[in-house]
């Protein structure tokens, strides 16, 4: 569905230098040689800190921006050259701004969309009815978009992006600013759409809940480069995140001494033990209970947020080392 090969995108930034009128000119590589392939039916999360190149990638995928170098293919088309043809095959949602018309009631906005995409009346009616039901648009179809709550607006935007039944859905931060219930609605909808209709979904987000709930595959971009591309599980391992055993001993004492296990923290009788990658938690627990008197044990999976933070830090570190 999507194929990017060695794609780069540079920007020239001109800025005024303080009070003097001298202008400085800097070339920024927003995306720096990215390659990946996304197959039909995948659900991919695209992560990265602000300014990492997420939006730039999305703009290149959707044909808004042309790539400076490399090749981009989406749904068999070249987005930069075949923008309008591509537009018929993809649905795009920008969480930060609506694709609907501010002054029009939602229903009229959707009618405009129908004309823009040349959806015939019968198909439009059927899809609108379906989307109205699953997204529960009924109560506010007649309300001008400016008066909708953020959650309602996002549901309207999702409907607008899907009225022409595109096989690929690209979402730029679709859950930003939404309340808990709206987030759940949007996530549930995307999940079903992907599972039942086989719609390929690519979404960028800062919300790790989106990732954990939805994405089977995660890509992390940092400083314009892909820092990670793979499953969620492997991401934890790659970033060097460790599982942690929290142990309550019968009485406070010295840090426990077990082969290959390092003690991260001691707080009275409670100790935090890092389990090295590749070793079995069961073995460690057996060893531990054999040697010490243990009251309670809890095993903590590495926190995804922690994993991502490590990944960004690592990127920054290597970047600073280069400079």
């Amino acid at each position: 569905m999507i194929e990017m090969r060695d794609v780069s995108r540079t920007f020239v930034i001109r800025s005024r230098d303080g009070r003097r009128l001298r202008r400085s000119r800097t070339v920024v590589r927003a995306v720096d040689g990215i390659s990946f392939t996304i197959g039909a039916g995948e659900f991919v999360g695209y992560l990265g800190p602000n300014g990492a190149g997420k939006s730039t990638t999305i703009k290149m995928l959707t044909g808004i921006l042309a790539a400076s170098a490399g090749s981009v293919r989406v749904a068999g088309l070249d987005p930069a050259r075949q923008r309008t043809a591509l537009a018929r095959r993809i649905g795009v949602v920008f969480g930060q701004r609506t694709t609907l018309w501010w002054d029009l009631p939602l229903r009229d906005s959707l009618t405009l969309i129908r004309h823009l995409y040349r959806v015939d009346a019968a198909a439009h009616r059927a899809r609108l009815a379906e989307l109205t039901e699953v997204l529960d648009l009924g109560p506010f179809l007649g309300t001008p978009v400016r008066q909708l709550s953020l959650g309602q607006r996002m549901r309207g935007d999702l409907a607008a992006a899907l009225l022409h039944d595109p096989p690929l859905l690209v979402l730029d931060e679709p859950t930003i600013g939404l309340d808990v219930i709206s987030k759940a609605t949007v996530r549930g909808f995307l999940e079903r759409r992907n599972a039942e209709q086989g719609t390929t979904v690519v979404l960028t987000t800062h919300d790790l809940g989106d990732i954990e709930r939805l994405c089977r595959r995660v890509m992390v971009i940092d400083h314009g480069r892909l820092a990670y591309d793979g499953g969620l599980d492997r991401l934890r391992a790659t970033a060097g995140a460790q599982r942690v055993l929290v142990v309550d001993l019968a009485r406070p004492g010295e840090p426990v001494d077990l082969p290959g296990v390092s003690v991260m923290r001691v707080e009275g009788p409670r100790q935090w033990l890092a389990i090295p990658q590749g070793s079995s938690a069961a073995a460690v627990i057996a060893e531990l209970t054999g040697r010490y008197e243990v009251r309670d044990i809890a095993l903590r999976e590495p926190d995804i947020e922690d994993v991502i933070t490590r990944l960004y830090r690592a990127g920054r570190g290597s970047r600073e080392a280069v400079q």
Binding site: G63, I64, R83, A87, I90, V92, Q96, R97, T98
Partner: peptide
């Protein structure tokens, strides 16, 4: 940025 939303339409 609303020009971007126009550019993703056919």
């Amino acid at each position: 940025g609303s020009l971007d939303t126009m550019l993703v339409r056919p």
